[in-house]
Each structure stands twice: as C-alpha cells, then as structure tokens.
Amino acid sequence: MDAVPILKLGSTLLVSIQVDLQDQTALQLQEDLAERITQTGARGVLIDISGLEIVDSFIGRMLSSIAGISRVLDATTVVVGMRPAVAITMVELGLQLDGVKTALDVEKGLRMLRPADTTSPEALLLGLDADRA
C-alpha cells in the first residue's frame, strides 16, 4: 500500500486523502506527519478528506491523534471537506473529533490557518518571515 503524500505549502503541510485507507497506511501517515512537522517547523496541518467515503472509529482516532500530536509540536490541524453523509454517520456512531478544527473546503481551511502565521509573536516582534522554514 502506497503512503499518503504530504505536500508543503508555505508553513502549512497539506494532506489529501484520496483512497480508502488501510489501517496500517493511516498509522504510517500519522508517523510521517509528526516527522514532517518537526523537520519543517510547520505551523499548520491541513487534511482534506473530501475523498473519503467513510470515517470509522479508526480513521476518526487517527485524525484526533494527528491534531493532538501537532498541538504538542505547536501546529494547528484543520480537517476539511467532510461529506454530509460521513458527518451524519459519525454523529450516529458517537464519534467526536476531539481537538480537531474543521472547515468546509481547502480554501476555508487555509484561511483558518493563516492568521496564526501573521500574528505569531516572532513575526510581530522581529519582523521575521513567517515562512522561514
């Protein structure tokens, strides 16, 4: 099973899940992301799940874990593009995405991540480029 590619866009890491994930691939993605956040000093992680037909408890837990890991590494996670049927099913299943921010689409998700860049104390005090990494 191929790994899910992680793209870097400024200080944001972008992941678009396009295939039905095997549990192993999901765990791999979680590890890869932790690695890349530290490597790149990314401040935001954007995960596009518009390609996912279901989010079961395993994938739900993966999303929560990624959000938790990035928070510890000082990055914000936004999950975007959840389909209505998936959201309804998750509510019925009793699945919550603890600590995960959500947005309707990639554009709105990026908008949520951007303020963190420009208002970071470093950027304000030292006038450093937020996209230093």
Partner: peptide
C-alpha cells in the same frame, strides 16, 4: 442536535 453537531464536523 445531531444536525448541529454534524454541521460542526463539516466546519459550519
């Protein structure tokens, strides 16, 4: 209530 929670999951 479920509708409200589902909308939140979607980012609305």
């Amino acid at each position: 209530l479920k509708t409200v929670v589902a909308a939140r999951l979607m980012g609305a």
